[in-house]
Design a protein around this nucleic acid. Sequence first.
RNA 1: GCCUCUGUAGCAUAGUGGUAUUGCGUUGCCUUGGUAAGGCAAAGGUCGAGGGUUCAAAUCCCUUCAGAGGCUCCA
Length: 648
Amino acid sequence: MPIIKIQLPDGSKREYRKGVTGQEIAESIGTGLAKAALAVKVNGEVWDLGRPMNNDAGISILTFKDQEGKKALWHSAEHVLTHAMMNLWPGKIEMAMGPATEEGFYFDFDSSKKFTPDDFKKIEEEMAKLVNQDLPIVRKEISLDEAKKLFKGNKYKEEWLSEIKEKGEKVTVYWTGKDFVDLCRGPHVSSTGKIGHIKLLSLASAYWRGDSKNKQLQRIYGIAFQDRKELNRHLEMLAEAEKRDHRKLGKELDIFEIDEDIGPGLVLWLPNGNIIKEELENWAKETEKKWGYKRVTTPIITKEGLFHTSEHLPHYKESMFSPMDIDGEKYYIKPMNCPFHHKIFAARTRSYRDLPLRLAEYGTCHRYEQSGAITGLMRVRGMDMNDAHIYCTKEQAVDEFIDVIKLHEYYYKKLGITDYSMELALRDLNSDKYHGHEKMWREAEELMMKAMKKSGVKFKVEKGGAAFYGPKIDFQIKSVIGREFTASTNQIDLFMGEKFKLKYAGEDGKEHTPVIIHRAPLGTHERFIGFLIEHFAGKFPVWLSPVQVVIMTISQKMEKHGEKLRKEFEEAGIRVELDNRAESIPKKVREAQLRKIPIMLTIGEKEVENDTVALRTLDGQVKFGVKPELLVKKLKENINNKELKFEL
RNA sequence: GCCUCUGUAGCAUAGUGGUAUUGCGUUGCCUUGGUAAGGCAAAGGUCGAGGGUUCAAAUCCCUUCAGAGGCUCCA
């Protein structure tokens, strides 16, 4: 019998007969593993457990702990979903496609029946049946002709097959039991029993192959876990995420409002929200002053010519609000601040001695976002941007850019944002949306790459995401509940300097074009605060809290004392409220908790007598006999240092 | 922009053809209390807007606005 050598996950080598499967190897290692195994990684490629190995190989057994194992399970769950729907509505479902994603799976299909979440229960029951039957899931390589016969009449599969033919790839199908088959590359788990518990989450629509010219299909999203408890935990997490939704909290905490009569994506900052906004703004102003930025202010509207120079017109016209006619000339509302800052640079003769010149502004910009893209504070049409442009020499560019990265890191660290990543977005060489000449692009890419590498920060390269005038770096931040956003975009720009004919006198006495760095570490107030609401679940650190301290009287007899205390806190620059209503303490506490006020003080007879307060923090801890002077001192320190937590 | 769904008082909700339910909040009165809801009462709604069907519309149909989940887009 021919023998092959397999290197096991622990590094040891063992001999097996030729044709051994991943499942058999898993069984030979340990019974627990045999059950948990979902797929196998063979020389770096993910395989089904049942696929025979005919050569020496190094393997690792994938379980639900591995993302690839999860994906095999989820993809199989997607097949079960398709299978169940074909069973329930025979002839009514034309299956298109369905992959596993990073957090579950979805299935796209075409059907004359309009599905609603009310159908989920029925489908889930059918899926549970299929899982209980523990049907084998078997991979088969078949010929193109066989495949064509098998999927005859399904235009989506036919399109897929003709593409496989073009690429010259092999056709693989997966059978679930005897009566369900789908065209699929896999990998899958070996039988439906391994999938465990499936939950359908939502219903949406999507264009076939993600192209808006194509037909829209119905899409069902789902998730699956082997362990019921894990599924429940996941569902709880989703519910928790919903509670943290900035739109919900924004309303509950009186942070912002979006009024129908004003328009979609146009934010009304309520007094509470405005405090957060101003605190952030002041922080950025102070910080950037220290980092050598100079502040400027520029208009919100401009003659159209400015955007022709920058080439935003006509290329980005559709993202701009329609122009208005002023004295027979077209004026646009600015979608960004860059050209204005360039004009400030150009307004005076510049020498290399003036560089780097860092111009910063809290600019109010408006962009015509697609109506369907607008969500809460995350995608808006009117925004305040913490924007700045650095004009420097080519020699300075790398270090300046590293400083920009450091500035981000400073901001994020202070706010306790630890989960972030960077993406270097380059141009897509096949697209014609990019401007400027080849040399300029290459140089800009090189400069950015150099800066990223020198800074030592991890980053991912993404093709096709660049701005039309240069590559960019996006900071992706993740909130505690796992929602990810682009918080800021930064660029080294060799294009606009030329377009705006910006010049400085160099050391050599000749004219040079400055390099421009675009940066906005806090992005827009809208998105950033939206993110922070979810990040902190509305429990802002003291310095950002709209109301920092509430003083609650046990009875209205303590009003005078309460008022005296309130004044003391207020004079110390602390945002404080006195709650002297004729309500019970439990009720006052409850309300303060719901408003997420970080410092709750109660005063009763004892406190008046001893001139102390009882301190309660949001986590429910109560400390009696606290001296107000000490508290004020500690709070001021906490606020000035912008600390994340308050401790006495 | 496209697809699907949703829209009832400040907020959260009940209501499948007979002009609207409940809770919180608000206001008033009583209560003056020790760490997540004290009691009673009152006010508050052209049921997103406009049109249509019908004796009668929150409810059915059309248009429109807004929101949600996606897709496309995202300088």
